[in-house]
């Protein structure tokens, strides 16, 4: 084998890595411009309140069952797990504190974000992607309607506003799940458990979770609309856009959760 071909292999690898990094930067830039454009439409008339209301109901109201069930079971599992762990060194009394802190700070917003990502991010991508491949988005332009203003802005606003409300409900249901297990199965006194919960939780815990929820809602709607808006190539393209939207928003939720936790709680 010649020395030039030996050199070429690692250089090919580097070139591929470089291309991937450039693609990532290009996509990040394009998504940012897309988001800025959509957000700018939120303050420029004409407005579409009916579309905003419809998207709000879709994200908030119709996601309640799945987010609620997730929160209840998560609270129940947390109570069981923390009890079995803490009982080893006689700290069973901390179960209520662990449940409320975990739910409000982390699990409420993150699990609600992931559930909404699977439900709403996928639906946004599929709906807008289908509109793209059937020329409906071009038709909007020919009907003197900006597709970003009509399709993207109401969904972004709705998800950003609805997610904190969903997470507030999830927080309550998650704590209730823990309460049920603690009182019915683990022998805790109901009033004592609730008092421990309310004494321990602070406003910062709840507010940080709600801020996270708003950010996650924005990210889910952004990735759903972006992937749908840029889908190409018929049914397969729409399917790919839907998968991409869910995967990208799930990863972003987990990454941003770390960033926001650092911002709120690191000393």
């Amino acid at each position: 084998m010649s020395s030039s071909s030996l050199l070429a292999r690692p250089l090919d690898g580097l070139a591929a890595l470089g291309r991937a990094v450039l693609d990532l930067c290009r996509t990040a830039g394009a998504v940012t411009l897309f988001a800025l454009n959509a957000v700018s439409h939120a303050v420029r008339p004409p407005f579409h309140p009916r579309l905003l209301l419809r998207a709000f109901l879709e994200v908030g109201y119709f996601s309640l069952p799945v987010v609620g069930l997730t929160a209840v079971f998560t609270g129940m599992v947390l109570a069981l797990q923390s009890f079995s762990g803490f009982s080893r060194f006689g700290a069973e009394g901390a179960v209520a504190n662990v449940v409320v802190l975990s739910i409000t700070r982390e699990l409420g917003p993150v699990l609600a974000g992931l559930m909404v990502s699977g439900r709403i991010g996928a639906a946004f991508a599929a709906e807008i992607g289908t509109m793209r491949v059937t020329d409906q988005i071009d038709a909007l332009t020919t009907l003197s309607t900006d597709p970003i203003k009509y399709l993207v802005t109401p969904r972004l606003l709705a998800a950003t506003l609805a997610m904190p409300l969903l997470v507030l409900v999830a927080d309550v249901l998650g704590v209730m799940g823990g309460y049920l297990i603690a009182t019915l199965k683990l022998g805790f006194s109901g009033p004592t458990y609730l008092k421990a919960t309310l004494d321990f939780v602070q406003m910062t815990d709840v507010v940080s979770g709600l801020v996270k929820a708003a950010v996650f809602g924005f990210v889910v709607a952004l990735m759903g609309t972006w992937c749908g808006y840029n889908s190409r190539g018929g049914a397969q393209g729409v399917g790919g856009a839907t998968t991409k939207a869910v995967v990208a928003s799930s990863i972003l939720i987990l990454a941003l959760d770390y960033v926001l936790t650092e911002a709120f709680f690191s000393r």
């Binding site: 709906e127 509109m131 059937t134 020329d135 409906q136 071009d138 038709a139 332009t141 020919t142 003197s144």
Partner: peptide, 16 residues
């Protein structure tokens, strides 16, 4: 654009 109309090949009607 406001003074134009367009009929798309597949209709492109908004199904919502």
């Amino acid at each position: 654009l406001d003074r134009t109309g367009m009929l798309f090949q597949n209709g492109a009607l908004f199904d919502s």
